[in-house]
């Protein structure tokens, strides 16, 4: 067992290593606002208990987003600004993939420019359609 900080309770060594990685990347994000990276939790020898320790330690921040994109995704900012917990689930709410994303905003939340261009075109076409003419 490894103790990350006084009073914070014990935490397994692999989870502590992940937290130190989070610290290093947050420091870089503070210097470089465009920096973005992710830590893939399922490729690490953490196990469910290790991931739960990380969840508890990182806590819950101000932002909590739910996405319905090819299954359910939840993106929560942790109690540490710039560190996000991203969980993808299947139709039975079983976790398929989990990451800690370090970024000002996770890329998955941003609308892609191609989708925005398509949205502008569609809305313009809908407004131009006779059914949408303004009432004078």
């Amino acid at each position: 067992m490894d103790t990350l900080s006084p009073g914070a309770g014990p935490i397994d060594a692999p989870a502590a290593a992940v937290l130190r990685e989070v610290v290093a990347r947050l420091q870089r994000l503070a210097r470089e606002p465009d920096f973005s990276d992710a830590i893939d939790l399922h490729s690490l020898p953490l196990g469910e208990s290790g991931r739960e320790q990380l969840r508890q330690r990182l806590g819950q921040g101000e932002v909590d987003c739910a996405l319905q994109v090819a299954g359910a995704t939840r993106i929560c900012e942790t109690a540490y600004a710039g560190a996000w917990w991203v969980r993808h689930a299947d139709a039975d709410d079983r976790t398929q993939h989990e990451q800690i994303v370090i970024a000002r905003v996770p890329a998955l939340l941003l609308a892609h420019s191609d989708d925005i261009g398509d949205a502008a075109r569609r809305l313009a076409e809908e407004l131009a359609a006779p059914a949408c003419q303004e009432i004078s």
Binding site: L67, V69, A70, A107, L108, A111, H112, D114
Partner: peptide, 10 residues
């Protein structure tokens, strides 16, 4: 959407 591409690729 392109979000689906990114999610799948991730």
């Amino acid at each position: 959407s392109r979000r689906a591409f990114l999610k799948y690729a991730g």
